[in-house]
Amino acid sequence: MASLTALLSKWPLIRQIRERADGTGLEAMSDKTRAMHARIDDAQVARSICPYCGVGCGQLIFHKDGKLLSIEGDPESPISQGNLCPKGAASYQLLTHSRRETKMKYRAPRAKEWTEISLERAMDVVADRVWESRKRTFVHKQNGATINHTTAICHLGGATLDNEENYLIKKLFTAGLGMVCVSNQARI
């Protein structure tokens, strides 16, 4: 019997009559609505920067046990003060949309389709390719002057890489392998 009255009391009509309301106020709220709260309430926050343009807006990345929940503007950033542009606001989808590639892919010469390959295997093959190409084309001296460079391997980087990544690229490619054809989008 008790469960019946409980069930009845949950019927908004009863609440409506008891509170003499017109059925449009809080009495018509379902339990799910009453229990509503922002999904980022108990999430961890990582403070980050938007990867899109050069303004450098601060971003708060809410995540919980290894899963992204939402990305919003960082109110304390002196540049953006919590705001973002449409691209910055779409950062969450940038990381979680279904067309994002998560598997290593390889295309053999003359092939028409991609084939699967493991990440470790791919790294070894690339290392071999670099090693052979460098061996074939390295120039130690050119009419007397030591130049120690190869122009047969080139690098074209975007400007959305971190400073540390750029540093490692320059250190390995130029200081290590002697590649000079290293370029990226930033010129002026």
């Binding site: 990867p51 899109y52 343009c53 449409p86 691209k87 779409a90 949309h97 067309r99 989008q185």
Partner: peptide, 15 residues
């Protein structure tokens, strides 16, 4: 609404 060559925006439905 888009970002340079589109790699980071032409694949997102919201943009």
């Amino acid at each position: 609404e888009h970002h340079t060559a589109g790699g980071m925006s032409r694949f997102l439905s919201h943009l």
